[in-house]
Design a protein around this nucleic acid. Structure first.
Length: 568
RNA sequence: UGGGGUGUAGCCAAGUUGGCAAGGCAACGGGUUUUGGUCCCGUCAUUCGAGGGUUCGAGUCCUUCCACCCCAGCCA
């Protein structure tokens, strides 16, 4: 079997497949779009992107990439009261961070003139009318889920009157709420979306791009289909809750007799132990449960980025969760698996001690310093080496010593010998305690023969500990994160419980860590593994005086599992 | 009898004309290991929401039922 052939096969199999790609395959076979594939990622710039958007980004841009088509970034900016330039900037940055580049940058507001013309055309066709009912009255006329609605008394206005009124709406003659433009469809339609939906409303607000040029703004259902049509989109991919809106999407395009893209709906991502609804994310920030939109505990892309997740890991995650139509709740462990998988390959290994216990090596000369050269990655020599100093006093992790070790504990204990990673074997001779019985120091001896971590006699030691030379250690602020919520689905709780009731009080712990000196110069955004502890990255808060690290995620820990089962 | 959608393992998810229920995560065993990491090997659905039917044969076809999700913004 040739290596190249096998590799080619693997790549073929590794390509994500899902019902949307199958539809595209079939349409290519039947030449439905003349060989074109055109998608768009259409966020409203009213907040920050989150992990749920990552799925949509990967789907839309991924399809365009794999089918050699195009994907636009389009801001659905039709509601000036909610949208801000700040959000468009952050969204652009997030999409690029995810590793995608749009073919065209578009705004629904680019189309306000065309959209207005389409609206007049609809009026001319007798398919839209100006309604002068109040919002409340319109709601009353809409009927309910089980009862049909009633026609508005303004429904039969003439084309001339509608045109006149609509133009005067545009010209600012009426206050907010005085009139709306509605599609004339069917007030008894079983699909409520089709009961004469609102197409335009008066909003005397300044738009972040068009300023005060307009005082009427088109609604989503009128804007989205036409924007897709104008851009020549082939596949308008959106989430399941828009399924009912598809009938209206199709109605508008058919009524106007324009190019007609195909809307297809897929299930949005739900991630266990997190919330992604914009409203709840806002509350977490406003109520101070987190430090901001980019808090490393937040599911926003900016938070995830700050936490140290890589775009590669996120893309892999999106490929692995698939795209389907069933509601889902993806296990958080899959996301963690994906970062570990990527960081295991790419993160240099460093040493740091987060909960120090001082070890004095009695037979190691006071003034001596060994300057060891360590590989940055045990499997990738090309990642280079660095110098790590060793001296008489070192720190080890407090958890790595037990005065009374349980079964299967093969770290340090009185009289036991362990290896200090890449350095020496040491044996614990004495445990020093303070007046309260707290262990404050270990007195050990080392075997000079074991330099580098092995001995001529080849004797085995089971434990290998990470360590930092006390004299050379660089203190740093290290932020340790846990899940933000204690419940798998914070949105589905027993009666009377609110999602803020299940916020994990221990979701962030700040400790002082002692780092090997090499880490003193690490720059914000750099990632590494602290051996045996997890993957970490340098926080933007970092300064030369005081480095700040975030723990992205721990390493898998099978000892913790053994210990847990022993306690049972 | 409002309309629409979805049910395959703890989680995600393939399964397209009916023909041996993919794969991944998690979990659990074992091996290698100078990270209790990585890596490697193995186990994990006699059954596809439930019942009935058609068929030599049903996750797939027919039928009845059940559960869950979405829709009554001048939000998207």
């Amino acid at each position: 079997m040739s290596d190249t052939k096998e590799k080619g096969t693997l790549e073929q199999d590794a390509r994500p497949t899902n019902f949307i790609r199958q539809i595209i395959d079939e349409e290519i076979a039947s030449n439905r779009w003349g060989g074109r594939v055109a998608t768009r990622f259409p966020p409203e710039p009213n907040g920050y992107l989150h992990i749920g958007h990552a799925k949509s980004i990967c789907l839309n841009f991924g399809v365009a990439r794999d089918y050699k088509g195009m994907c636009n970034l389009r801001f659905d900016d039709t509601n000036p009261t909610k949208e801000e330039q700040e959000y468009v900037d952050s969204i652009k940055a997030d999409v690029r961070w995810m590793g995608f580049e749009w073919d065209n940058l578009r705004y629904a507001s680019d189309y306000f003139d065309q959209l207005y013309a389409y609206a007049e055309a609809l009026i001319q066709k007798g398919l839209a009318y100006v309604d002068s009912l109040t919002a409340e009255e319109i709601r009353e006329h809409r009927g309910t889920l089980k009862e049909p609605g009633r026609n508005s008394p303004y429904r039969e206005r003439s084309v001339e009157e509608n045109l006149d009124l609509f133009r005067r709406m545009r010209d600012g003659e009426f206050p907010d709420g005085a009139h709306v433009l509605r599609a004339k469809i069917d007030m008894a339609h079983p699909n409520i979306v089709m009961r004469d939906p609102t197409l335009y409303r008066i909003r005397k607000a300044t738009h972040h791009r068009t300023g005060d040029k307009w005082c009427i703004y088109p609604m989503y259902d009128f804007t989205h289909c036409l924007s897709d049509s104008i851009e020549g989109i082939t596949h308008s991919l959106c989430t399941l809750e828009f399924k009912n809106n598809r009938e209206l999407y199709d109605w508008v395009l058919d009524a106007l007799e324009v190019y007609h893209p195909q809307q297809t709906e897929f299930a949005r991502l739900n991630l266990s132990y997190t919330v992604v609804s914009k409203r709840r994310l806002i509350q977490l920030v406003k109520d101070g449960h987190v430090r901001g939109w980019d808090d490393p505990r937040m599911p926003t892309l900016s938070g995830i980025r700050r936490r140290g997740y890589t775009p590669e890991a996120l893309r892999e995650f999106c490929d692995r969760i698939g795209v389907a139509k069933a509601d889902n709740m993806v296990d958080y462990s899959l996301l963690e698996f994906c970062v570990r998988e990527h960081l295991n390959e790419t993160a240099p290994r460093m040493m740091a001690v987060l909960n120090p216990l001082k070890v004095v090596i009695e037979n190691y000369p006071e003034e001596q310093v060994d300057e060891f050269i360590f590989p940055n990655h045990p499997e990738h020599a090309d990642m280079g080496e660095r110098v790590v100093p060793f001296s008489r006093e070192i720190y080890i992790e407090r958890d790595d010593f037990r005065e009374d070790p349980p079964k299967k504990f093969f770290r340090l204990a009185p009289g036991k010998e362990v290896r200090l990673r890449y350095a020496y074997y040491i044996t614990c001779q004495e445990v020093i305690k303070d007046a309260n019985g707290e262990i404050v120091e270990l007195r050990c001896t080392y075997d000079p023969e074991s330099k580098g971590g092995g001995t001529p006699d080849g004797r085995k030691v089971k434990g290998t500990l990470h360590w930092v030379s006390a004299r050379h250690a660089v203190p740093a602020e290290v932020r340790l994160y846990e899940k933000l919520f204690t419940e798998e689905d914070p949105m589905d709780l027993p009666e009377g419980k609110h999602f803020t009731d299940v916020i994990n009080p221990d979701s962030m712990k700040v400790v002082t860590g002692y780092l090997e000196p090499h880490l003193a110069s690490a720059k914000a955004g750099e990632r590494c593994q602290f051996e045996r502890l997890g993957y970490f990255c340098v926080d933007p808060d970092t300064t030369p005086e005081k480095p700040v690290f975030n723990r992205t995620t721990t390493l898998r820990d099978s000892w913790a599992r053994i210990e847990r089962s022993q306690k049972k």
